[in-house]
Structure formats: structure tokens, C-alpha cells
């Protein structure tokens, strides 16, 4: 991408689309457990996620691009997570927030916990922490944006 003095931008269609897509990620309002409260905190005034174009939390999976799986996924909940993922339109992205979602976390000795949401849905970015701070989740979203911008290069 190149900006001239007269304000002319030359770019490819793919790059323009990726740029737009990465700066308007609409997450799904989908809180499972403790991490959901930190997910609410990045929505709020102190850690404003609107700076990254992601402030519009959608309640319907059909209107959202990004699923932040925030909280422990149990065996009872896993089919619902999969279903919600399938209801989302393409292109869709998943952030696994918290160690419970990554590998079971403190509950990995238990009988009812799915050890990693990546067994249920494909994950793009993992954000470790129990719960991760809002700063960590913001970093995760920035990493995802970077990934989306480099999608056609691969």
C-alpha cells in the first residue's frame, strides 16, 4: 500500500478487503465463565476495544465474525459451541481465551471438562492466563488482525 502526496492510494483488492476486515471484527457476545467478566471489561471505558474496531458485540452468531471463547468448555456445552461456530458466516475467526479453553487449565483433572476448545472448533489465536488481563486479550485481537492482514501472502 502506498500513499502519495495528493492522497492517492494504490492497493490490491485483496489487501483492501483484508484491511477492512481486520479493522471491523465484530465479536459474538458469548461468555462462559470467569473470563467473560474480563471480556466485558475490555468493552468498558478503561480498556476500550473500540480503538480496534471491535466494539460492536453482536448477540447473534449470524452477525459476528469473531468468537471469543471465554471460559471453561464443558462436555455439555461443547456441542453448543460447535453449533454457534457453524452458524457464523464466513470469514470467521476464533480466539481461545484463558487456560481452561486452551487445555483444561485448573480443571483438567476433572471428568466434565473438554481439554481444549481446539478439539471442538478451529482456533486462530490462543490467549493464556487465568483469567487473561484485558491487555492480554487486546494483544490477542491485535495478533488476529495481523494474521488477517497477511492472509493472502501465505
Amino acid at each position: 500500500m502506498k500513499t502519495g502526496d495528493g492522497g492517492v492510494v494504490t492497493t490490491t483488492l485483496e489487501q483492501a478487503m483484508e484491511w477492512g476486515r481486520s479493522n471491523s471484527l465484530w465479536p459474538l457476545t458469548f461468555g462462559l465463565a470467569c473470563c467473560a467478566i474480563e471480556m466485558m471489561a475490555i468493552q468498558a471505558a478503561d480498556m476500550d476495544i473500540a480503538r480496534f474496531g471491535s466494539e460492536v458485540f453482536r448477540n447473534s452468531p449470524r452477525q459476528s465474525d469473531l468468537m471469543i471463547v471465554a471460559g471453561t468448555v464443558t462436555k455439555k456445552m461443547a456441542p453448543r459451541v460447535r453449533r454457534l461456530y457453524e452458524e457464523m458466516p464466513y470469514p470467521k475467526y476464533v480466539i481461545a481465551m484463558g487456560v481452561c479453553v486452551i487445555q483444561g487449565g485448573p480443571y483438567n483433572q476433572g471428568y466434565s471438562v473438554v481439554l481444549g476448545v481446539d478439539k471442538v472448533v478451529p482456533v486462530d489465536v490462543y490467549v493464556p492466563g487465568c483469567p487473561p488481563t484485558p491487555e492480554a486479550l487486546t494483544h490477542g485481537i491485535m495478533l488476529l488482525q495481523k494474521k488477517i492482514r497477511n492472509e493472502t501472502d501465505r
Binding site: L32, G71, T72, K76, Y107, G110, Y111, S112, V113
Partner: peptide, 14 residues
Amino acid sequence: IGYLHRNAEKICEL
């Protein structure tokens, strides 16, 4: 209910 049953009580016993 039961969508967030993480068997915390059982794990505490371990």
C-alpha cells in the same frame, strides 16, 4: 443448569 459444571468440589478433594 449444568453447562458450567466443572466438578470443583471433586477436584478440591484431590
